[in-house]
């Protein structure tokens, strides 16, 4: 239960990061970063924000597997 709540929190924080780097308000935890106009350069800025916030360094290849706030939150959850 606690875990589910924290995943939701992370998802919503990452959605906030998406909004900031994409300069786009209309997105949610299932929004695909690239479909919403993101590119690889902007993706690195999401990854640097995740590293700052959660001390988790994801790679670009990990990012593209499920490039949504919920996909990234799941990766952060399982990161060592």
């Amino acid at each position: 239960m606690t875990r589910a709540v924290s995943t939701v929190t992370i998802e919503s924080a990452i959605a906030g990061t998406f909004r900031r780097v994409l300069e786009l308000d209309d997105l949610d935890e299932r929004t695909d970063f690239f479909a919403a106009g993101g590119d690889s350069l902007l993706a690195t800025r999401v990854l640097s924000a995740i590293a700052r916030e959660y001390d988790v360094e994801l790679t670009f290849d990990e990012f593209v597997v499920d490039p949504t706030p919920s996909g990234l939150a799941a990766l952060i959850e399982v990161a060592p």
Partner: peptide, 20 residues
């Protein structure tokens, strides 16, 4: 695939954050 170079993405992200 794609144009992203095989370099540390977090380090490049920090650089682009500063430039932005």
């Amino acid at each position: 695939d794609g144009r992203f170079p095989p370099l540390n993405a977090v380090a490049l992200g920090e650089m682009f954050d500063l430039l932005d």
